[in-house]
Design a protein around this nucleic acid. Structure first.
Lengths: 127, 127
DNA sequence: TCACTTACTTTCCAATAGGAAACCAGTTTC
DNA sequence: GAAACTGGTTTCCTATTGGAAAGTAAGTGA
């Protein structure tokens, strides 16, 4: 008799795995968390503002990631009737709800950097 | 005078962005969080156990992701001197520290599913 | 008319991710 | 001796990601 999976083979684990898969898909790619974080901090922001804030992003990727996140309702897009037309992006309720996750991510990332720098200072650097 | 970036142009934001980038790099790919979650729940696990638990993963990806995470010190690898040699993978201190982030991710993912199902049941589906 | 702004879109390309299948080496069981 | 278990590695292939650069459309100012 072959061994069968046991751990992940129950409803609670499957629900958790689905939730993780959803979150990873919706936040996938190099830029989404960066864009989202910038909008969370900055409030309403226009396309060119975002491109200026987010170092290194091209207009193609910015437009694409914004569209993805609008479809997934993480943010809203409003076209303003200005002289050259401007577009405002704002965080939605469900986008805001990502803040605790992002904060935990930041906490872990910072802790991990600390670990690495402490290990590498074993050989007597100052500080 | 052109507009200059302001929001992300300070030390606190840069530190946060670096932390997010670190976390995303270390956890990148389709399988790492799944593998990690399985080891967190299951404790010490062997290669074939993991392959049985994680539905759909091939030996190539499992081996590669385990190596990545061992290098990044999220888990430990121990070769046991058994009849056919067996290898145990176990979560490390820094891997364990990911649990709060994973939990926040799960919370958000579940809340997001709720949102979608509530919106889609507007047209009267049963349950 | 020319240049510059807005917000994108399109095209073309290179690099990476990831899967299927075969293979490998050592040990045990039938 | 053949088959099956262990924990992988190797090869080959396709699909996705993401970047650079140019183009588009509409409006403003000199």
């Amino acid at each position: 008799m072959k061994k069968q999976p046991q751990l992940n083979n129950n409803q609670i684990c499957q629900t958790r795995l689905n939730a993780i898969r959803d979150a990873m898909e919706i936040l996938s790619g190099k830029w989404k968390l960066n864009i989202l974080g910038t909008i969370i901090v900055g409030g309403k922001m226009r396309f060119m503002d975002l491109q200026r804030e987010i170092h290194g992003i091209g207009s193609k990727m910015l437009a694409k990631e914004l569209q993805d996140m609008e479809v997934n309702q993480l943010l809203t897009r409003t076209v303003l009737d200005t002289k050259p037309v401007t577009v405002e992006y704002e965080i939605s309720e469900y986008g805001k709800a990502l803040a605790p996750m992002i904060d935990e991510m930041v906490k872990w990332g910072i802790g991990y950097r600390d670990l690495l720098s402490r290990k590498s200072t074993t050989k007597g650097q100052f500080s």
